[in-house]
Structures are given as structure tokens and as C-alpha cells.
Design a protein around this nucleic acid. Structure first.
Length: 484
RNA sequence: CGCGGGGAAGAGUACCGGUUGCUCGCAAGGCUCAUAACCUUGAGGUAGUGGGUUCGACUCCCACCCCCGCAACCA
């Protein structure tokens, strides 16, 4: 009760392939926010996981000659191992194929919707393309034929469960409008409001089990398997203690990509309303990563593997690039040249060099008492703290990082102005100046900790403080310059 | 077609109706504690295009162009 609780989620990744840097970005954003909240004293729960059902996965497994369960286990492990590669601090990893923790919640949620009278059977008639092995819409057709497969689709009828999404349009619109369900950035809020204004239609909530066997069975109807909505979205509940826990404390923020905004801002809230459960407090919508200006796609072959990046550059440089170079709420670009520019400019020359110069200078002093800190330094640190807090509140991570690097620049300037290496300075004068510089370094380290936890650890390890006495060790180069 | 977002110096971005600010990159000078680093100064933008409102617009309005997402069964 007394302690602030904070519950943050990423979307769950579809486990049909290996993770790419898009998911790495979302994980890192969530991680930085989670670490920041934890550091600020909140009891934080950070959830991530994998979405493992659906015919796409069943087919991918079949193509790989594997049982879907085995296939999905292997992929889930790869997503899980992002934790080490990227130094993620998640507390829970939910898998939708988990029959013990996930299925009962998905089914309970389903039953709640049913109890509210919001699920009904309806015959769905659609155009089925054999090539797609899926329904297509008239817009996918050219001259009455599937644009991809050049075949006329068949008209197929099947019975599905439907959810009365239409019933909740108005209520959701209102809650988004008055920020009861806060959507950030504001442009995304506008986007979803304009969609809601057009109204929502009821959606199909299940598939015949004969077509979709790899999924959660519909309770009380063996012939049907849940379609993605109840199956996947319920992870936010099953991954953190189940329905009772959600009732007490729903998610503070769901991090999602712009591609799944409508699911999270319309379908998910509608389900929760129908189930008489509280809505998440906010959604933060990030953009997509382009690679050298192009959309990342398997067919183009420009998919960037986060594990390779980490292998090549190290964890914190990858964290830094994705959190700093990619604007948190817009599309951003990944490129190796840019990566190395950022690395050299900010990490090697900026943070790394500043840490080296300060610790080298201060290590020559032995143990010394911390003197008074200049008013200008105190106020710069305070300003930085305020800026970081403001930016973090709106999840503008890249801008928060900018504020921290301004502090480092301030530190470099302070060193140049006061020249603690000057032979004419008395030992007291040197100590005073270095006391200030170390203070700047320590503060910057503190602010950077959510973003670059490993680096912060290293710097903190070089500065020992006890009872107002400080001992500084010379630090090993944190980020050796990359040379072309 | 429609809805939403975005288009600013080589790159990434901020604020704002009233001489475009910041970071990286680039150039010159300074300094030498530090990872050829750091500091200072400078070059570089007709703010997508064309109209309009206004004493005055990057900022408001309209049209168009380009990019991105959505467009309900595609996870």
C-alpha cells in the first residue's frame, strides 16, 4: 500500500522466427523504464513473453519438420536469451502455450465475456484462398483472383464465436479521450480516436478446431479454438498473478508497436470492460526500426540480429544506440555507420573519456574528504535530474539520454575551466575541483544506470565513498574507440 | 479512395506567431589531465511544394507531392 507499484509489459513476440532488433528495441525501452522506476523506489514488475499459437506457427513448425510444441520451445528460448544479451531486467516471461499459468486465465477471461453476454455464434462467410491457407478480403483480389496466388478464392462458410466489440466503442472512446486510458504519444491517441469515431464491428473470436488445433480450446465448445485475441492479450493478466492480481493492480503501461495499436486500444479495453476488469493505465506506442532507410523484412534480407550486434559491439553500446538514436515514439533508422558514429561520439569521446579523465586525476589523490560542491554544479545536476524525470514520465527515452550527456559535457567544460592538473594548484584546491568532477561523474552514472546498467556498475565500482571520504581508482577504458 | 502521423543544415532531433536551438559529423583556434580526447569559435538550413490568414509564419488554414502505419481476421 505504501510502496508505489509499477507494472510494465512489452507486447509478446510472435514465436515463429528468431528475435530481431525491433523486438530488442521494445524490450530495451521497457527495461529502461522498469529500471528507472525501480531506482525511483517503485516495486516494479516487468513482463515480457512469447505468443506461440496460431496456424502460422503450426505451419512454420510443419515446414521445419517439427512438432509445434518443440518448435515453439526452441524459439521461446531464443527470446528468453535476449535477457542476457541485452541485460534485461524482466521479472516474468509468459508463454501462451503454457497450459498451467496461461490457459486457465485465457479461458476464465473467455467465460467472463460469455457471462456478460458478449460472445455469440455466427456463421462467417469469407473468401478463402488456398494459397494463403487463409481468408482474404475483396481488396486482396485483382480481377477476382488472389493477387499473390493468381487463383480464384473459394467462398467458405464456417461458424465462429463473435465478440460484441461494437457495444464498447463509445465507452472506450470516452476513456481514451479523458486519458483514463492514456495513450502516448498524443499522435497515436488522435489516430485511435479517429478510428473509434468510425465505429467498431464485432470480431471473430474463435476458429473451428479442425482448422486451428494449435491454440487454447474454447471452454465448453470442443469444436472451437480461441482466435488470437483472448489467447494472446490475456497474457498481461496471466503473466502477473492472474485475474485477481490484475483487478488489484492492472498494468501501468503496455509498450507496443504502432502496428498493434488498435488491438491494444480497442479490442483489449473492450474485453476488459466486458469482463468487468480494470483497464491498463496507459499505452506507449513506439515506432519501427528501418535499416539503412528501408523497411526491415525477411524477403529483402536486411533483418538485423540483436545477438550479432551484441557480439560485435557489446551490450551497453547496443542499448545506447537503440535507446538514443531511435526516437522513442517515432520510426528510427539503424545503420552500422551511424552506430559507430554514435559509439565514438557519445560513448568513447563523451562518457568513456570523461570517466577516464576524472578517475585518472582523482586516483592520484589517494583517499580524500569530499569538500563543498560548487553551486553551479549542484544546480546543473538538479536541472539534469528534473529534465530526465520529465522525459521519462512521457517515455521520451532518447531525450532523457540527451539531458544526461549535457551533464557530461558540462563536466568536461568544468575540467577545462578549473584545470585540476595544473602544477601550481595547492592540494586542497585540487581536491576541491576533483570533488566536484567526481560528483558530476557520479550523478551522470546514476542517471545513466537505467540505460547502461553494466557501464554504471563499472564506474560506480571505481569510486568508493564512505563517511565523506572518497577513494577513486583509475578506470579501464569503458568504450575503446572504434577505428574504421 | 479513406483515417492518422511525419517531411527542417550531411545525420538525428527541440521549442515556438515576432532575429531556427541542441547532439553527432565537418573546419579553424586553444589546451594537454583524459580513449588523436576535451574546450572555444566557425561553415552549413529560401524549415517538402504552392497558395492563403496576419503588421509578421517553420509555427495557423487550404491544396498538392513524398515516406510510414492502420484500413477488422493478418500474429
Amino acid at each position: 500500500m505504501t510502496k508505489k507499484e509499477f507494472y510494465i509489459t512489452t507486447s509478446i513476440a510472435y514465436a515463429n522466427a528468431a528475435p530481431h532488433i525491433g523486438f530488442a528495441l521494445e524490450s530495451l525501452q521497457a527495461d529502461a523504464i522498469a529500471r528507472y522506476e525501480r531506482q525511483s523506489g517503485a516495486e516494479t514488475f516487468f513482463l515480457t513473453g512469447t505468443d506461440e499459437h496460431g496456424s502460422k506457427i503450426a505451419r512454420a513448425a510443419e515446414a521445419a519438420g517439427k512438432d509445434p510444441g518443440v518448435f515453439v520451445d526452441a524459439n521461446a528460448d531464443r527470446f528468453r536469451s535476449l535477457k542476457d544479451a541485452l541485460n534485461l531486467s524482466w521479472d516474468g516471461f509468459i508463454r501462451t502455450s503454457d497450459r498451467k499459468t496461461h490457459w486457465p486465465v485465457a479461458q476464465e477471461l473467455w467465460q467472463r465475456l460469455e457471462k456478460s453476454g458478449d460472445l455469440y455464434r455466427k456463421t462467417y462467410r469469407g473468401l478463402y484462398c488456398v494459397g494463403h491457407e487463409a481468408f482474404v478480403t475483396p481488396k486482396d483480389l485483382v480481377d477476382g483472383k488472389c493477387a499473390d496466388h493468381k487463383k480464384e478464392p473459394e467462398v467458405i462458410e464456417e461458424e465462429n464465436w463473435f465478440f460484441r466489440l461494437s457495444k464498447y466503442t463509445g465507452e472506450i472512446e470516452l476513456k481514451i479521450k479523458n486519458d483514463e486510458l492514456l495513450i502516448l504519444p498524443e499522435s497515436r491517441k488522435n489516430e485511435i480516436l479517429s478510428l473509434l469515431k468510425q465505429g467498431l464491428e464485432d470480431i471473430s473470436f474463435s476458429r473451428p478446431a479442425k482448422d486451428l488445433s494449435w491454440g487454447v480450446p474454447v471452454p465448453g465448445d470442443e469444436t472451437q479454438t480461441m482466435y488470437v485475441w483472448a489467447d494472446a492479450l490475456s497474457n498481461y493478466i496471466s503473466g502477473h498473478g492472474g485475474i485477481g492480481a490484475w483487478q488489484k493492480h492492472p498494468a501501468d503501461v503496455h509498450l507496443i508497436g504502432k502496428d498493434i495499436l488498435r488491438f491494444h486500444a480497442a479490442i483489449w479495453p473492450a474485453m476488459l470492460l466486458s469482463a468487468k476488469l480494470p483497464l491498463p493505465k496507459s499505452l506507449f506506442v513506439h515506432g519501427h526500426i528501418l535499416v539503412e532507410g528501408e523497411k526491415m523484412s525477411k524477403s529483402v534480407g536486411n533483418v538485423v540480429d540483436p545477438f550479432e550486434l551484441v557480439e560485435k559491439y557489446g551490450t551497453d553500446p547496443v542499448r545506447y544506440y537503440l535507446l538514443r538514436e531511435i526516437p522513442s515514439d517515432q520510426d528510427g533508422d539503424f545503420g552500422y555507420d551511424k552506430f559507430e558514429e554514435r559509439y565514438n561520439g557519445d560513448l568513447a569521446n563523451g562518457l568513456g573519456n570523461f570517466a577516464a579523465r576524472v578517475t585518472t586525476l582523482a586516483s592520484g589523490l589517494g583517499s580524500f574528504t569530499i569538500g563543498e560542491i560548487d553551486a553551479s554544479v549542484v544546480s546543473k545536476i538538479e536541472v539534469t535530474e528534473r529534465h530526465v524525470a520529465e522525459k521519462m514520465k512521457n517515455f521520451r527515452l532518447s531525450e532523457a539520454l540527451m539531458a544526461v550527456f549535457e551533464l557530461i559535457q558540462f563536466g568536461d567544460r568544468y575540467a577545462n575551466d578549473h584545470k585540476p592538473w595544473d602544477k601550481n594548484l595547492s592540494p586542497e584546491e585540487k581536491r576541491k575541483i576533483l570533488g566536484n568532477l567526481v560528483e558530476i561523474l557520479r550523478s551522470a552514472t546514476h542517471f545513466l544506470r537505467p540505460f547502461l546498467p553494466g557501464t554504471a556498475e563499472k564506474i560506480a565500482g571505481a569510486v568508493e565513498v564512505s563517511d565523506g571520504t572518497m577513494t577513486v581508482k583509475k578506470i579501464e577504458p569503458l568504450f575503446p574507440r572504434l577505428t574504421a
